[in-house]
Computed example of a mutant assay.
Amino acid sequence: MTLVVGLGCQRGCDVHTLLDLLDSALAEGGIERQRITALASIDRRQDEPGLVALSRLLELPLQCFSADQLAVYEDRLSHKSAVAFAHTGCHGVAESAALALAEYLASGPARLLITRRKNAQATFALACAG
């Protein structure tokens, strides 16, 4: 099974903030960190130091998508954020990115296993496929 973590974050969000959110959401879902296949986000965050550091720390690839690529998942989101849309052009980065990468990696349909979780600086979602 392919498990993909989708992440959205504010500029300057540090790796510890992202890791705390990821670990707490996975613990809540009863999923071990080592089962994660990859990380996903929006292309405007591909060089974000916190996301890059998290990818390195977890030894997982980080794949980013354009707002247009993420927008096609809008009707499948658990939460549509006007704030996210104003900043990125899509209504939910974490859920959309998780679905997009899970479907790409598995060459088939994906679903949200853990819907949007957030803290003050970041959002998290987990999608599965296969």
Rank of each mutant, 00 (worst) to 15 (best):
M1S: 09
V5I: 15
G6E: 06
G6Y: 07
G6D: 02
L7G: 02
Q10V: 04
G12A: 05
G12F: 06
C13V: 11
D14V: 09
D14L: 01
V15S: 10
V15I: 08
V15N: 07
H16M: 12
H16Y: 10
T17A: 12
T17D: 12
L19N: 10
D20L: 12
D20R: 13
D20P: 05
L21W: 03
L21E: 01
S24T: 12
S24Q: 14
L26V: 02
E28A: 15
G30S: 11
G30A: 09
I31F: 13
E32Y: 07
E32K: 13
E32S: 10
R33V: 06
R33S: 06
R33M: 05
R35F: 00
R35C: 13
I36A: 11
T37M: 03
T37D: 08
T37I: 08
T37S: 15
T37C: 09
A38M: 04
L39E: 00
A40L: 13
S41H: 14
S41M: 11
I42Q: 14
I42W: 13
D43I: 08
D43Y: 07
D43S: 13
R45W: 08
Q46S: 10
Q46L: 12
Q46A: 11
D47F: 11
E48Y: 04
P49C: 06
L51A: 09
L54V: 04
R56G: 11
R56T: 04
R56S: 04
R56P: 06
L57W: 05
L58Y: 07
E59I: 01
L60D: 07
L60W: 02
P61V: 01
Q63Y: 14
Q63A: 12
Q63M: 13
C64K: 04
C64W: 05
S66I: 00
S66F: 00
S66P: 05
A67K: 06
D68Y: 02
D68Q: 14
Q69S: 12
Q69P: 00
L70Q: 00
A71K: 12
V72W: 10
E74S: 15
R76I: 03
R76H: 06
R76C: 06
R76K: 09
R76E: 03
L77P: 15
S78C: 07
S78K: 03
H79D: 03
H79A: 02
K80Q: 14
K80I: 06
K80L: 09
A84P: 15
A84G: 13
F85K: 15
H87G: 14
C90Y: 09
C90E: 05
G92R: 10
V93Q: 08
A94K: 04
S96Y: 01
A97E: 08
A98Y: 15
L99T: 08
A100Q: 02
A100W: 00
L101S: 00
L101R: 00
L101D: 00
A102G: 10
E103Y: 02
E103L: 11
L105R: 08
L105V: 05
A106G: 14
A106V: 01
A106H: 04
S107M: 06
S107F: 09
G108S: 10
G108T: 03
P109I: 03
P109S: 07
R111C: 06
L113T: 12
L113S: 07
R116D: 02
R117E: 04
K118E: 08
K118R: 11
A120F: 05
Q121N: 09
A122T: 08
T123V: 13
T123W: 13
F124S: 08
A125C: 09
A125H: 01
C128S: 11
C128H: 10
A129D: 00
A129K: 00
A129M: 01
G130V: 01
G130W: 04
G130M: 01
